[in-house]
């Protein structure tokens, strides 16, 4: 690993000031992704800003929402009584990700900021527009079994690897960002599609940091939830396809539904059109199949990942079937 300067500021302002002044500085908290990327030479920050001294770890009920500090560990969120009661979907998604050791290290903010696991991004001998702009996409005509089927461009077909983020986008979470001023943005607007500049994973600006996530209260969506993750082994593997689903049935009809998919796009992929189709309808296999077909509109395979074109709708149908039997 190339050496670097290490600082541990005691205030949030000192962190954002340092990030604003120094383009080569990066935040470190859990370090589970960043240290790996530095060892591999994928990234080489000249300064690491350790934010673990900041008081941003609380998980607390506030008026109308639950606030989770950016430094809350993945394991702490997954085991929080409050989260298990109000947002079991989030706990399920977190427990589907990584390993117990990694969940004990990784933070909420770090989970959001983690980079793709595209093997071309990781291999510094390969072209990758995300790692080095203008070098091309190795995956496009290479080995792309793990890659995206939605929102792709010829510049990049990488997927965002998080499980947690799939649940958070389904739950309409808000991202609290601090910089020169504080701003709040919908979770769906935090990550971005690759477009012409795949090097940018998200909409965070220089000099900004995530300070918290806020999830609006919605008891109806705590009743029947599933995080269905299809992967190459039973545990400790990234998703081929994952589906987060929450369903509320009243008087035999779907009163509320949330659907989001992982392993398919450069950002957590909310299935809004499928949700709109299902609202007010009977929770039947036929309707679930139609919803899955709507969700798959515009999906595109790149060869090795063509199996996802079948696996994705099947996973949606299975997830919806599971939550409807809970109801």
């Amino acid at each position: 690993m190339i050496n670097f300067n290490y600082v541990k500021p005691s205030t949030q302002k000192a962190v954002t000031d340092t990030l604003g002044k120094d383009a080569t500085a990066q935040i470190i908290a859990g370090g589970t992704n960043l240290v790996d990327l530095m060892k591999r030479g994928v990234t080489a920050p000249e300064k690491l800003v350790d934010i673990t001294g900041l008081p941003l770890k609380n998980i607390e009920q506030q008026k109308g929402f639950v606030r989770i500090g950016t430094l809350a560990l993945n394991s702490e969120v997954a085991e929080s009584e409050l989260i298990l009661k109000k947002f079991p979907l989030l706990a399920k998604a977190l427990n589907a990700g990584a390993s117990p050791q990694l969940r004990n290290m990784a933070t909420v903010g770090g989970n959001m900021m983690q980079r793709t696991r595209c093997s071309y991004f990781y291999d510094t001998a390969m072209p990758c527009n995300k790692r080095k702009a203008g070098t091309g996409c190795g995956a496009l005509k290479g080995y792309n079994r793990m890659h995206a089927i939605f929102g792709t461009t010829e510049n990049c077909i990488a997927v965002h690897p998080s499980d947690m983020c799939i649940a958070l986008v389904a739950l309409d979470a808000i991202v609290v960002i601090s910089g020169k001023a504080e701003r709040r943005i919908p979770f769906a607007d935090f990550h971005r599609l690759a477009g012409t500049n795949p090097d940018k994973d998200n909409t965070l600006q220089r000099g900004e940091m995530i300070t918290a996530i806020e999830i609006p209260d919605n008891d109806a969506l705590a009743k029947n939830t599933v995080y269905l993750k299809v992967r190459d082994r039973a545990s400790y593997a990234f998703a081929l396809i994952s589906v987060a689903a929450a369903l509320d049935v009243k008087d035999g009809n779907i009163a509320a539904v949330r659907l989001a998919m992982g392993g398919v796009a450069h950002k957590p992929w909310r299935l809004t059109a499928a949700e709109n189709f299902l609202k007010g309808k009977v929770p039947s296999t036929e309707n679930f199949k139609q919803a899955a077909a709507i969700a798959m509109k515009d999906a595109k395979g790149f060869g090795h990942n063509n199996f996802k074109l079948k696996l994705a709708p099947n996973t949606i149908i299975q997830a919806l079937t599971t939550v409807s039997t809970q109801a």
């Binding site: 470190i28 370090g31 589970t32 240290v35 673990t52 117990p100 050791q101 004990n104 290290m105």
Partner: peptide, 26 residues
């Protein structure tokens, strides 16, 4: 040495973590 195998697992303040991905200064 990349957080994939668990052979480096130690306890920090009682919690199991991967020492290969933990910076000593932290």
């Amino acid at each position: 040495d990349h957080g994939q195998c668990g052979a480096c697992t130690v306890h920090v303040n009682g919690q199991r973590v991967l020492s290969c991905l933990s910076l000593a200064v932290m």
